[in-house]
Structures are given as C-alpha cells and as structure tokens.
Design a protein around this nucleic acid. Sequence first.
DNA 1: ATAAAAAACTTTATGTTTAAAATAAAATCG
DNA 2: CGATTTTATTTTAAACATAAAGTTTTTTAT
Lengths: 167, 167
Amino acid sequence: MTHLPKTFPEKLGGAPHSKQSLRLWLRMLSCTILIENTIRNRLAEQFSTTLPRFDVLSALERHPDGLTMGELSRFLMVSNGNVTGLVSRLEADGFVVRSRAPKDRRTHYVKLTDKGMEQFKAMAHVHENWIDEMFASISVEEENRLMDDLRQVQNSVIRSNPEKNPS
Amino acid sequence: MTHLPKTFPEKLGGAPHSKQSLRLWLRMLSCTILIENTIRNRLAEQFSTTLPRFDVLSALERHPDGLTMGELSRFLMVSNGNVTGLVSRLEADGFVVRSRAPKDRRTHYVKLTDKGMEQFKAMAHVHENWIDEMFASISVEEENRLMDDLRQVQNSVIRSNPEKNPS
DNA sequence: ATAAAAAACTTTATGTTTAAAATAAAATCG
DNA sequence: CGATTTTATTTTAAACATAAAGTTTTTTAT
C-alpha cells in the first residue's frame, strides 16, 4: 500500500500508475492549501481583508475595461452566485462599481474604483513579496519545470473532461 | 530573524525571479481549482455528497484508530470550528461517531462507522479512477518530477515561515 | 494546595460557496 | 408580431469556513 513492489504489476493495456497519480494530487492539494492559508492569514493580519476579496480586486486590476459578472465568475472559477455577494460587499465598501451596459441591460460591468485600485496596489506589492519569500529556495530551473509540468496537468485534466469544463 | 542565506543576491539589486514565482503560484492555484471543481461536481452528481465530507471520511479511513477533533483539523488544514460542523453533520447521518476519551475528558475521538467505511470505500475507488483519468496524459517521469518539485515547494514555504505554520 | 496557564473543543458572528430556482432581458423562430 | 428559448444575473437555502470568544478540563508554577 505504501511502498511499491519491485515488480510493478501493471496491466499492459494502459493501467494507470497505480496510486501514483492520487499521491501527486494530494501533494498538489496540500501544497496549495499551505500557501493559501499563509496568504489568508497575512491578508487578515496586515490588511484586514480576505483572500476572495483580494482575488476579485486582482482580477479587476488585470482587466481595466471592467468585467461582466459572468466573466468574473469564470475567471475566478467560482460560482456566479458567489461573485454577486463578493461584489456587493466590495461595492458597499467603495472598492468597485457596477454599471449597466447600455446595449444589453442584463449585463453589469464591474470595475475598480480609484480607491479600489489604490488598495489593490498597496496589497499587490506586499503579496508578491510573500510569494517570492515562499518560493525563495526554488531555483529558476525548478520554477520553469513546474510551470511546464503544471501546464501539462491542466491540459490533461481538460482533455479528460470533454463535454463540460467545470465552472 | 528569518533563515535566509546570508548571501541573498536578490535582496540587493531588485526583483528576484521577477514575477516568475507569482505566475507559478497562480498556475498552481488554477490547476488545483480545476481539479477540485471536477471532483466536487462528480461527487455531487454520483454520490450526492460534498468534497469536505469526502475529505473527512478519507482522513478517518487513513487513521483506523480514530482521530481527535484537533488532529483532524490539522490533518485537513482547516479550522477547528469547521471540523465541528462537518463531524456533527456526518455523525447525524451515521457515517462517523464521536466518543470521549476516558483519560482526558476534553478530547473527542472521531471514527468511521461501518456505514461510513462502506460509503467511503465505494467512493474511494471511483475517486481514484477520476484522478487517474485526469492525469492520464502525464508520464510517470513527469509525475515523479512533480512530486519532487512540489516537495521542494512545501519545504520552501515552511522554511519561509519560521514562527508559525498556518493552520 | 491554589491560581494561572494551556489545551481541546464548541459556539458565535460573519463571510464564502455552491446548486438550484427565480427574474429579467435579448435573441430566435414560426 | 407573439411565443419560445437562450443568456445574464440575482436570489435563496443549505453547507462550508474562518477568527474570535467562551466552556470545560488538565497541566504547570508557584
């Protein structure tokens, strides 16, 4: 169970890598949670904000022309109902604004306000330093290799799910 | 204060790997969310359950002697209050049992019931197949490399956070 | 022995998240 | 044109999640 036998009894026809993929997935997950929790704690301590709020501001900063609610939810890979609540709270705090599109009155465009941009910039710089610190003992070669391999994983996952990509 | 090496060339001149580490982190994150969402959707469709519930059952299956609430929350890397609610719901549904320790009456041991074990086994097999499918086009070499590199990342993150490891 | 501190867990308040249902506007079609 | 369908978003209800404060029990230091 924990140790692989010397003679690896894989079937010829394409048996998977035993539990190797599962272990890899669990390591990816714990690694991600570890980093996420670190960022979450520091955002709370130093900026009194939360990771989802930071993620919304970050997404909007990368799209200066604004995003619709649906685009935002797909970009962040969360449900659309989730985005509604987050944006409402951020709007109440003056960090973002919603505006209806003149053409299609169903769509709402969300944009950063000046206050939101300022707040994000202050956080982004520090946030990037946290990431740099956390990855400090990873060499550039390792980082490039990880980038490539993770891209392969993304492609593999998408390829394995032909019909619907999860929201 | 930190355990950074004495010669830390990036500290002086400027940006370390530029925004390379940030990009890597964002790719790790999107990759993880992609897989998580896939699993979440399939657990809902095929077993009418949720990922957090599956995670609890999975953790308990790996610890047949049971876990305390605190051990469980640390193992899953979630808050202790979160575990209380999850376990309460799972207990109400008959998948787990809580029992007080005779020695230390503060601690509650959580264990799988037979029903919980049966339910988990049914899900675990299918779950492993999902993972295998998602990683189908990743070679064994890539998987091993990713395992190693992600271990490096874990170590790097832990090393960068000397005082408190995030819960 | 007794008070203070620590540990294990729960509770509370707030916020996040999802799936599903509801609403509303636009596009399609007969 | 009017009916249907599709699209964009919001609302709802339940579950999930966190931090902080509270409860009970054990340990430690007087």
